[in-house]
Design a protein around this nucleic acid. Structure first.
Lengths: 164, 164
DNA sequence: AGCCAATAATTAGTGCACTAATTGTTAGTG
DNA sequence: CACTAACAATTAGTGCACTAATTATTGGCT
C-alpha cells in the first residue's frame, strides 16, 4: 500500500516538488497577500494585523488575561508580550497584574481602545470588497481553513513513536 | 446602496467583528500551523520553510538570479538576501555576480544542494499523510488559495483614486 | 513553616517579512 | 564623454513568531 508497486499514478512523483503545486507555498503567499490588503486599512487605525487580531479578542470581552488571549489566538504568550506592550504604548490597552493572582496579567481596553471598535466595524466589508469576495465565498474559504487547522492539530506522529 | 436602508441582512453587521468569523484570522493560523507541520520534517534536512521554498525554485532551474527567484516566490529581494546568505553558509548554494551584468546575482546549487533534492522527494507525501489529506483535497485547497492570491493582486483601490 | 512542582509572564536569541535608504552597475541622452 | 535615470542587491530598522531560559508567584505536601 506504500507506493512502489502502484501501477497507475496520475502524475509522476517527480512533479510533486514543482513550486506551483505546493499547497504550503500557495498558503503562505495567500496569507501574506491578504494581510497586505488589510495593511493600508488598519494603518489608518494605527494597528498592525496581529495587533488588530488582539483587539478583536478584546472587543469581545475586555478584561482578559494574556494566557486567555494567547489561547484564543493560538499564539505563544512570548509572541503576544511585545504586541501588548506596543498596544499599551499606543494607549489602547492597560496591563495590570490581577489582584489575587499576581502571576496573571489582566489586559483591559482603554476608552480609546474601546472607541476604536467604531472604526473597525467597516473593516470586514471593506476587505471583502477589495478582494471581490461575497459573504458566501468568505464563509467557504473560512470553512476550508478551519478544516486545515484542525488537521494540523492532530498530525500523524513524527517517527511513529506516538499514537494518534 | 451603503447599508442603512437594506431590510434583510442575514447576520447583523455587529457579528462581523467576531474573531471566529475572520477569514484573515483563519488564514494566518492555517499558514502558521501548516508551516509548523513542515518544521520537524525540514529540520532533518537542515532547512527552514522559507529556505525550502527557495530550494524548490532552484531544483527547477539552477543558475537563477535573485531577482528571478524573488518573482517566482513573490517575495521582496530584501527578504531573500539573508535567506540566501544562510543557504550559502549551509553549503547548499553559491552566490556570484554575473559576468556581463555585475548588478545581478547568480544563485547556483552546489552538489550538496542538488543532492538534497533526493531527501526532499518524500516531503510532499509525508506532509499529506500528516494532514490526512488526499491529493484531490490538496488540489482543491490549492485552487482556492490561488484564487485568493489572484484577488489580492487586483484589489479595489484604496481611496478610489485609481481605476481597476 | 519549608520545600517543590506547576503556572504565568518576560527576556534572549534566531529567522522572516516588510519599507526605506544606500551602494554599485548599466544604459540612455545630450 | 559626462549626466542621469533605471535597475539590482544589500543594509538598516521595525515588528512578528518561535524556542529556550529566566523570573516570579502559587499551591500542594510533608
Amino acid at each position: 500500500m506504500a507506493a512502489p508497486t502502484a501501477p497507475e499514478t496520475a502524475a509522476p512523483p517527480e512533479d510533486d516538488l514543482l513550486l506551483e503545486r505546493q499547497l504550503c507555498f500557495a498558503l503562505t503567499v495567500a496569507s501574506r497577500s491578504v494581510v497586505g490588503v488589510y495593511k493600508p486599512v488598519l494603518e489608518r487605525m494605527g494597528l498592525t494585523h496581529p495587533q488588530y487580531l488582539v483587539m478583536l479578542a478584546l472587543w469581545e470581552r475586555s478584561p482578559r488575561t494574556l494566557k486567555d488571549i494567547s489561547e484564543a489566538l493560538l499564539h505563544e504568550p512570548a509572541t503576544l508580550s511585545p504586541i501588548l506592550r506596543r498596544l499599551e504604548e499606543a494607549g489602547f490597552v492597560t496591563r495590570n497584574r490581577i489582584h489575587g493572582n499576581e502571576r496573571a496579567l489582566a489586559i483591559t481596553l482603554t476608552e480609546a481602545g474601546a472607541a476604536l471598535r467604531e472604526q473597525a466595524t467597516s473593516v470586514p466589508e471593506t476587505i471583502m470588497k477589495r478582494l471581490h469576495l461575497t459573504r458566501a465565498e468568505v464563509a467557504e474559504l473560512h470553512r476550508a481553513m478551519t478544516g486545515l487547522i484542525a488537521a494540523t492539530q492532530h498530525p500523524v506522529a513524527d517517527t511513529g513513536d506516538k499514537l494518534a
